[in-house]
């Protein structure tokens, strides 16, 4: 089988899919310090991430998650939940979906967006922690504008993709996955694409 075809899941992905770690059990009384909920079940993907943070060193001591999503979303969030335990929230914030995918031994290309969702839920949970602990100044999405409602892609990510070489809407989609679900943000994204192209390369 060639790599990255639709069903070429690694053994590790299968293992995490079969036995997902740190899934929230409704009956447990998990006391989170931060909570992030991203995605939209209408688009076929929703992710909830709960983190417990030790205020002393600001380390993540435990986490729980839940998802309405596909195999890749389940496996990548399971892996993410293992990776972040013990990290400081700053370190956790820096974790990229790419790292999680690497740890899983790769995901089919069309499924990369699923790992993005877990990561976004984590960042939302960290921001929520800052909000709850009176450190609102550290929240990092204040100035961002949400463009793709389905996959939670913000304008700054579009700018980043443009800087990385995206010049067309298709290339922008390849990098950010925006507009690949309901497609409702296309017009707004294309306007932003033009703006950022003008700004950096015009």
């Amino acid at each position: 089988m060639p790599e990255n075809t639709a069903w070429a899941y690694s053994e590790l992905v299968k293992e995490h899919f079969m036995n997902p770690r740190n899934v929230l059990d409704d009956s447990e009384n998990f006391q989170e310090s931060g909570k992030g909920l991203v995605g939209n079940p209408q688009c076929g993907d929703e992710m909830l991430m709960l983190i417990k943070v030790d205020p002393e060193g600001e380390r993540i001591t435990d986490c729980r998650w839940k998802t309405y999503g596909c195999a890749s979303a389940i496996a990548s969030t399971s892996m993410l939940s293992e990776v972040i335990k013990g990290l400081t929230i700053e370190e956790a914030f820096q974790i990229t979906p790419k790292k999680i995918v690497e740890r899983l031994g790769g995901l089919p290309d069309r499924k990369i967006h699923c790992s993005v969702l877990g990561d976004k839920a984590l960042r939302a949970a960290i921001n929520d922690y800052y909000r709850r602990s009176g450190q609102a100044d550290k929240i990092r999405e204040e100035k961002r504008t949400l463009v793709c409602q389905c996959l939670n892609v913000y304008d700054d990510e579009i700018e980043e993709a443009v800087l990385e070489g995206a010049k067309t809407y298709i290339e922008l989609q390849e990098r950010t996955k925006l507009g690949t679900v309901c497609g409702g943000c296309r017009e707004q994204a294309e306007t932003l694409l033009k703006q950022y192209l003008q700004k950096h390369f015009g």
Partner: peptide, 9 residues
Amino acid sequence: RRMSTTYKR
């Protein structure tokens, strides 16, 4: 469903 954010028992 136990993992699901949307399924309400």
